[in-house]
Amino acid sequence: MKTSSLLASFLRWPILPRILLIIFSVNLLFGALIHLLEPTNYPTFFDGVWWAFVTTSTVGFGDFVPSSITGRLIGILLILIGTGFVTTYFVTLATTAVTNQNAYLEGKSSYQGNKHVIIVGWNERAKQTISQLLAIQPPIDIILIDETLKQNPAPSNHTHFIKGNPTTDDVLLKANAETAESILITSDQNRDEHQADMSTILTLIAVKGINPNIYSVVEILTANQVTNAKRAGADEVIQTNKLSSYVMINSIISHGMSEALLIMLDQLKGSKLKYLPTSNDLTGKTFGECSRILQTMSILLIGVKKGEETLVNPSLNLTIEPQDELLVIKD
């Protein structure tokens, strides 16, 4: 009963460890046999094992050769049995490596890390976001989820592709959403605006169900779905159409403004625009005073976040309080 249990346990092992164990066992057995049969030609047990491994690998150094008929018959048997297992092992090893590589490229393999960023949807915005995130030091692991791509569009040491529907648990678990630090859900441009927003909100609900603490940034196209996105747990909502309309309006009123805005935004790529907590030496000072102090450190102060409200270019006399956050541009 115990023997059958051990055999059943062995058969459940992955194929590579099983074949490797069989190879070692066969070589040890035949090494012991040849040592016992021809102690003159094989003075030690290790000499016999060395001969067995050299024979099964078809190297054949010729430093140990059986002289008896029995010894040679054992050698023939070892070649027939051992070489077959060795060949099978290397073929299986190569097949496994190719299969794993294909699974990685095709988005079928799971991600095992943590504190990563998940990006849902492949489009030009996602492409630019991934490119800029990869430029940040230290590097951030990025997991891209998309159901339309055939393989990873941006392969690197820090990008992992998962193919599938991001609203399903099995896909999110493959992306290890349970331990992810943040997620960006981009809008599906292949759907109309209303359906795209519904899909975005459904994805957000699915992610929050697995990881309620994940920091979520979602792209919403229609203004009437912003509230629903926040109800679903979005930490930040990016209204793409609203941002685009602002650029268009400024370009109509002030010609050439779109190019100026793009140049300005390009200078902010990466992590240059950020919120800083108010330090003790800045508490109680005015916005103008803080601005002058920060400029000496090559930091440009452009606004203040008070609670949920962000004030951009406020009055120079605005007093900075301990709980405020400073909106700055910092290289």
Score class of each variant (00 low, 15 high):
Tyr111Ser: 07
Tyr111Gly: 06
Gln112Ala: 10
Gln112Cys: 06
Gly113Gln: 07
Asn114Lys: 14
Lys115Tyr: 10
Lys115Gln: 14
His116Thr: 10
Val117His: 06
Val117Met: 08
Ile118Trp: 01
Gly121Asn: 12
Asn123Trp: 11
Glu124Leu: 11
Glu124Arg: 13
Arg125Tyr: 11
Ala126Lys: 00
Ala126His: 05
Lys127Ala: 10
Gln128His: 10
Thr129Ile: 13
Ser131Ala: 15
Gln132Asp: 08
Leu134Thr: 04
Ile136Ser: 12
Gln137Pro: 05
Gln137Ile: 10
Gln137Lys: 15
Pro138Cys: 00
Pro139Val: 14
Asp141Leu: 07
Asp141Thr: 07
Ile142Leu: 01
Ile142Tyr: 01
Ile142Gly: 04
Ile142Asp: 02
Ile145Val: 12
Ile145Thr: 05
Ile145Pro: 02
Glu147Val: 00
Glu147Ile: 00
Thr148Glu: 08
Thr148Asp: 02
Thr148Arg: 15
Leu149Gly: 03
Gln151Asp: 13
Asn152Asp: 13
Ala154His: 03
Ala154Ser: 11
Pro155Gly: 04
His158Trp: 13
His158Cys: 05
Thr159Leu: 09
His160Leu: 03
His160Phe: 09
His160Arg: 13
Phe161His: 07
Lys163Thr: 08
Pro166Arg: 03
Pro166Glu: 06
Thr167Trp: 01
Asp169Lys: 12
Leu172Val: 08
Leu172Gln: 05
Leu173Ser: 10
Ala175Thr: 05
Ala175Ser: 06
Ala175Gly: 08
Ala175Trp: 02
Ala175His: 02
Ala177Gly: 06
Ala177Met: 11
Glu178Phe: 00
Thr179Trp: 00
Thr179Asp: 07
Ala180Tyr: 04
Glu181Phe: 12
Ser182Thr: 14
Ser182Ala: 15
Ile183Thr: 08
Ile183Met: 09
Leu184Lys: 03
Leu184Glu: 01
Ile185Ala: 09
Thr186Asp: 11
Ser187His: 09
Asp188Tyr: 13
